[in-house]
Amino acid sequence: MTAYDIIRKPLITEKTELLRREHNKYTFEVNRKANKIEIKKAVEEIFNVKVAEIATVNIKPVTKRHGMKLYKTQAKKKAIVKLASGTISYFKEA
């Protein structure tokens, strides 16, 4: 897997922005098969920063209902990455 296969997308919510501002932690949706070492290498390669620690969370699928039909959401994995140095810019500054 390449670094871009491991890191799928950044998760940007109110809670993750609070973590980013106060604790220098960034949250990403990652490939479910990736481990912490692969995630660390991918983040360091893509964003050119130094990673201090990583926490991963496996999100199980949830059964939901739409009228009479039942369906399950997709299982996901997210990584919360704390940076030792540097920052990550999600969007280009105008």
Score class of each variant (00 low, 15 high):
Val51Arg: 07
Ala55Ile: 10
Phe91Cys: 09
Thr87Asn: 13
Glu53Cys: 09
Met68His: 14
Ala34Phe: 06
Ile7Tyr: 07
Leu18Ile: 13
Ala55Gln: 15
Tyr4Ile: 08
Glu45Trp: 01
His66Ile: 10
Ala94Val: 07
Ala79Gly: 02
Ala34Cys: 07
Tyr4Asn: 14
Lys77Trp: 11
Leu70Tyr: 02
Leu83Phe: 03
Thr13Ile: 05
Glu44Gly: 13
Ala75Met: 02
Lys72Thr: 09
Lys64Leu: 12
Leu19Ser: 05
Ala75Gln: 03
Glu53Asn: 15
Thr27Lys: 10
Ser89Leu: 09
Val57Cys: 09
Thr13Phe: 11
Glu14Arg: 03
Pro61His: 08
Lys60Tyr: 13
Lys9Tyr: 14
Val43Thr: 10
Arg65Ile: 14
Lys82Tyr: 01
Asn31Ser: 14
Ile12Met: 05
Lys60Leu: 15
Thr63Leu: 15
Gly67Ala: 14
Ala79Glu: 02
Val30Thr: 03
Gln74Asp: 15
Val49Glu: 01
Val49Gln: 00
Thr87Arg: 13
Ile88Ser: 03
Phe91Lys: 13
Val49Asp: 00
Ser85Trp: 07
Leu19Cys: 05
Ile88Cys: 06
Glu14Ile: 02
Ala84Ser: 12
Val62Gln: 14
Ile88Gly: 05
Leu18Phe: 08
Lys60Ser: 15
Thr56Val: 05
Glu29Thr: 09
Leu18Glu: 12
Gln74Pro: 11
Met68Thr: 09
Ile7Arg: 04
